[in-house]
Nucleic acid binder design. Sequence first.
DNA 1: TGTCGCTGGGAAAGGGCTTTCTTCAACTAG
DNA 2: CTAGTTGAAGAAAGCCCTTTCCCAGCGACA
Lengths: 345, 345
Amino acid sequence: MATLADVARRAGVSAATASRVISGSAKPVTDELRDRVRRAVEELHYVPNAHAQLLARADRIAVGVIVHDVSDPYFAEITRGLQRVATEHGRLCIICNTYRDPDRELAYVDLLRAQQVAAIVLTGSGYHDPRFSRLLAAKLRAFEQTGGRVAAIGRHRLAGDSVLPANEEGGYLAGAELFRLGHRRIGVVAGPKVLTTTTDRLAGLRRAAKESGQTISPRRVVYADFDRDSGAAAAAELLDAAPGITAIAALNDAMAIGVLATLRARKIAVPAQMSVLGFDDMPVAQDVQPALSTIHLGMPELGMRAMALALGPPDPNPRVELLPASLVRRDSTAPPPQGKPAGKA
Amino acid sequence: MATLADVARRAGVSAATASRVISGSAKPVTDELRDRVRRAVEELHYVPNAHAQLLARADRIAVGVIVHDVSDPYFAEITRGLQRVATEHGRLCIICNTYRDPDRELAYVDLLRAQQVAAIVLTGSGYHDPRFSRLLAAKLRAFEQTGGRVAAIGRHRLAGDSVLPANEEGGYLAGAELFRLGHRRIGVVAGPKVLTTTTDRLAGLRRAAKESGQTISPRRVVYADFDRDSGAAAAAELLDAAPGITAIAALNDAMAIGVLATLRARKIAVPAQMSVLGFDDMPVAQDVQPALSTIHLGMPELGMRAMALALGPPDPNPRVELLPASLVRRDSTAPPPQGKPAGKA
DNA sequence: TGTCGCTGGGAAAGGGCTTTCTTCAACTAG
DNA sequence: CTAGTTGAAGAAAGCCCTTTCCCAGCGACA
């Protein structure tokens, strides 16, 4: 692999001059030498060693992003927003997938620190795990103390700024809609119990229930993994355990799609016999059959706001922005069937 | 930011000893000193500077992956396979999105070289663009000459090994199925003209037509962008320009989903009035309504094979592996409607 | 003509780490 | 009791760049 020294030797100049030409320094270099260096670069297929550059330069150019899984549409959308703003600021994103493993998350914070990133953006839910939260907060604080910036999406009480999707409000909107339609026995396909996202959305649902003088029976709540297949399995479980339900609220769209698959397999018509409500409003929500009613959150916006906080001017005390949720009515919700519902009352 | 020297000073040892403890060198260090170093690391929240490490170490640990867009499900699936194998080999993946911009692709090869990656995996279609192909090939060759490895998915005649998805065969299977069902006037929603993937799939379709004594009229081929919305637009165009068609073959699933959306909007029943066939068999294909008949390609497998070639023992002459395609029959295809078709004949 | 002020180029000092080479001390064996 | 080993720690040489600092040479001005 050719080095700067090789280029300089070939061009008959000093390494300093070669460097100035190659990295476009402010210092002037005569056209003659400039050309010689350029030619040498061409001939040797020289590419500067990024690590040496980063070591020699003082400024931190990259920003780190920690997500559950970029190929999960929910995070893909958020990441799109993050990247957009990062690019505008001339920053490179290093993206790390945790696959919801807290240990991996901790390891990635170190890795990003090691990469000398200017900022770390954490996306995705917080965990109900005090030990983990403490460790993570400590690591982030250490990072901030060395001048690093931290922004989180949907975390509570961690270091740095954060953007909160209105999960509780979204849950409330979902519940309010179902009760308004006349549903009384509502099943819930929830996400993993340890995630604060699950807790918050569920809390909103419960608040709506309470407001209508109803409750959401714990027996009608099944916990799944926020993905399609576990949503499908959870729906099956729910139908067997609580046959009287007339609506299912899934706490994200992927699981809602799984719910639809199970209902189709059991020949239960949606929305005639059963209403289904999703959460997140991912792009596919409009392409499934029936088109999914869901809670819109504006994920790219979420990402853009978070990155803007991370790269904008710092503020000594943590800022928190709230991104509102809204209901999107499509074709998967309707009033409950008249007379006797699908199972026994 | 604490450095190794800080740690060494605090522990009262030399930098050499500190380094040996921290990076787990084979060289023995007494427990006493080991503990002191460990404690200093803890107290200072020390994380080694990755750039300095990479500069000092000889071995290249990372591998680079160039894709169109990881959040596109097609590439997400491939990437999943790539990552899996890379992780097994203890390698880190650096993923770059080109968004199908050839210039960006060239730039990323340099960037990855600069990052000192051990290998570069190119995924996605080749371009019909001699200038670009020449430049890319030259860059890759230079990379290989400095010991780098190159593997491509679906490229032709570039440096290094490659894994070819059976695009032509898949196109043939798609066409054969539609003709077998009795369709005669088939519309095609193709991908971008400049991509070899488009050309190959189209060629397969044509071969199937020829075998049935038919042709695919160029007037019934509309070129789109391999995404949902352009697929939807293309379908509309196709229906207006060639009202007599009884089936639409889309050259990927995303566009097929767009086609379904357009048909739904126009109240054309699928498959009763119009058959729709996709390509790629992405996960959502089974969740749209009607479930999409499509050509299965096994994208994760594609990725795994490519990464295995890139990281396995090198072979002086380029290897080419072919990954077969297969037809998946679901609910979006059926024989053409009896009697008079949807429009005029 | 002598001095000052520029300008363009090079020498060299880092930047933070790994690793070879060296040193030193503590043992073992003769 | 000394010579010869071994084993552990440290000194220092790189890895490849950037950038400061310094110098030589030049034109301009007095």
